[in-house]
């Protein structure tokens, strides 16, 4: 390869000898590293780029020189390593270019070739797309009013946890939660007040969950659902009762606008042939029972043995 040709390449090319001294340093590197060829030639790479010491690039160079292995450092898995800059202004704020680096041992000679490609433009586009897609995903799965998961999120969660419980042969519980007399509340105090009420209930519920993977979502209207993985009926009733008292303590004290909730607990060991819908209907059935027994209470339905009971 002639050096004149190398100088026209839009990639950085460094040739190292077996002692890791620079034998070749093309114009691209002069431009982006701000280091003259005369300075770089015969210098140790780690003197020109001190950031190489102890880095993954150093290990890749060692592997090329001692074991004759080629390596690749991708911009996705590695932070920009070398002090290379697209524009002079970037140097002042140390905004390094995004780098794709290939390290290849030389054929039939001691030494290795390092090629650096500037992928800043595409990496930046990737970052933007990624941020957008994360935001979109967030929006797709979040209830805009209350900030908790929405119905779509619930559908995915319940199905995923159901399959997981089926595979692991573990128990799964679900809470269906409804705000008592919400229609009357809305009618008396207006929709804006109803929205505030929904937000407060959602917050009280979310605060009462365990850290162990309990997942809450707004199921629809004034109804919420909480998926409790690997939790049996007794455990689920404890959580349900805690949520009920928490809402009572936070929101039922306003004498003019008291807010309470009823909770239906469904619990089962998912078996062959059963679906997440069985569990949802079971929890719904318990919720109706809680309403029928006077509201502001927890009822429980065990789908394994058909036991239905309202907690005192």
């Amino acid at each position: 390869m002639s050096e004149a040709l190398l100088d026209h390449l839009e990639v950085g090319v460094v040739l190292l000898d077996a002692q890791q001294r620079i034998q070749l340093w093309n114009t691209w590197l002069v431009r982006h590293a701000g280091i003259e060829e005369s300075t770089a030639r015969n210098a140790l790479l780690s003197d020109v780029f001190p950031e190489v010491r102890d880095s993954r690039l150093q290990r890749a160079i060692d592997a090329a020189l001692t074991q004759r292995m080629a390596s690749l450092l991708s911009p996705g898995l590695n932070a920009p390593l070398l002090r290379l800059y697209q524009r002079p202004v970037d140097r002042r704020v140390d905004l390094r270019m995004r780098q794709l680096i290939h390290i290849v041992p030389l054929k039939g000679a001691e030494g290795c070739l390092i090629q650096i490609t500037d992928v800043t433009a595409s990496a930046r586009r990737e970052d933007q797309l990624r941020t957008q897609s994360t935001e979109l995903r967030d929006r797709t799965y979040r209830d805009t009013l209350t900030g908790i998961g929405n119905r779509r999120k619930f559908d995915e969660t319940i199905n995923m946890e159901f399959r997981r419980a089926l595979r692991g042969n573990t128990v799964l519980s679900l809470l269906m939660i409804d705000i008592d007399h919400f229609k009357a509340y809305n009618d008396s105090f207006g929709h804006p007040a109803g929205d505030v009420c929904l937000k407060m209930v959602a917050k009280a519920l979310a605060d009462g969950l365990r850290d162990s993977g309990d997942q809450i979502a707004r199921y629809g209207g004034e109804e919420f659902a909480v998926v409790l993985p690997a939790t049996d009926g007794a455990g689920a009733c404890l959580v349900a009762e805690r949520l009920r008292t928490q809402v009572e303590a936070a929101l039922a004290t306003d004498r003019h606008r008291p807010v309470t909730i009823s909770v239906g607990v469904g619990t089962m060991h998912p078996g062959a042939g059963s679906t997440a819908d069985s569990l949802i209907s079971g929890a719904d059935m318990a919720l109706y029972q809680a309403k029928a027994d006077g509201r502001n209470r927890v009822a429980y339905f065990n789908l394994d043995d058909g036991n239905l009971a309202t907690l005192a």
Partner: peptide, 27 residues
């Protein structure tokens, strides 16, 4: 990479990352 992508969204970026993973394991 901490992302959620479908196969259609896989770009150069992910393919390079996958290459690096393979490179590390194979080497």
């Amino acid at each position: 990479l901490g992302t959620h992508l479908s196969p259609e969204e896989l770009s150069e970026y992910e393919q390079e990352a996958m290459c690096e993973v393979g490179n590390i394991i194979l080497n």
